[in-house]
Design a protein around this nucleic acid. Structure first.
Lengths: 145, 145
DNA sequence: ATCCTTATCTTGAGTAATTCAAATTAAGGC
DNA sequence: GCCTTAATTTGAATTACTCAAGATAAGGAT
């Protein structure tokens, strides 16, 4: 496990340096947490990070998360009625399915192969770089209730 | 103009009653504002309403907007880095184009005829009722700068 | 037309998520 | 191992929104 840790740390440092960010303990810790998969609020990440790295501040976590999102190492999603969520950015273009009752969020692969909705019919002169699809529905558990 | 006002008021009352909501001055005022088109924050609506209808509270505006959104007379959108926006619900299924620099938001008609992305490839048992597409890009003004 | 019930609005306070700013600390090139 | 500058800590502030109790007004019944 110490071995694995070390390997990860080096990989994380590389990733950070590659995008021009300094490799700090806080950033590596946040990246490790996100790498576990799933969707995390800033507070969730803070709690998880605090276990490994005592004395980290919530503000630092906010700063790290937005830095990572800015350079594309993490993805920020902002669902209705929920604080912002962050996820480890895997290269795929996946979307989100959110339950309008309980707020649960699931990943769904991009509907038709790659980026079906990436081309807006009228782009108003915008240089479009991403398209995000959010499906709203009711999850099985809430339908039952 | 008094004539037009009267007509609008009656139409608005009908729309409200049709969905089982009481027709109040505040609700009609908010509906008139939204009918002007564009995207409005709760605060924007409040400012606009306050000119016609003195003594209206911001909380009332919040209440009216969520009531209207709930019955489908208005649509709520929640863009990144911006308070929630409301727009008059026209029946079309249009989407939004948001500038990642300045936050400006444009409407775009649904890309391929009707609801191209409405069908998620994996629905995880959810009953999906809407799909929302948000395009992220840079507006002409910000590209120039 | 007036009363009565209940939805809606007002007033005032409270909260959660996030941001700002000044001082301190630590990365990484020299 | 310095030195510059980015990043973090600490503490406070702000924004967007929600909650709750009492007052008001819609709209059906009388």
């Amino acid at each position: 496990m110490t071995e694995t840790q070390t390997v990860n740390q080096a990989q994380l440092s590389e990733q950070l340096n590659a995008v021009g960010l300094r490799s700090t303990a806080q950033r590596r810790a946040v990246m490790e947490v996100l790498a576990r998969g799933g969707h995390w609020t800033a507070a969730d990440v803070f709690d998880a990070v605090a276990q490994d790295l005592e004395g980290t501040s919530l503000q630092a976590v906010y700063g790290v998360l937005s830095a990572l999102a800015e350079v594309g190492l993490a993805r920020k999603i902002e669902p209705p009625n929920s604080p912002a969520l962050y996820e480890h950015r895997v290269g795929d273009n996946h979307h989100h399915l959110v339950c309008t009752e309980c707020g649960e969020i699931k990943d769904v692969p991009c509907a038709v192969g790659e980026a079906p909705c990436l081309t807006a019919s009228e782009h108003h002169g915008y240089a479009i770089h991403t398209a995000e699809v959010t499906y709203h529905g009711i999850c099985p558990a809430c339908r039952a209730a």
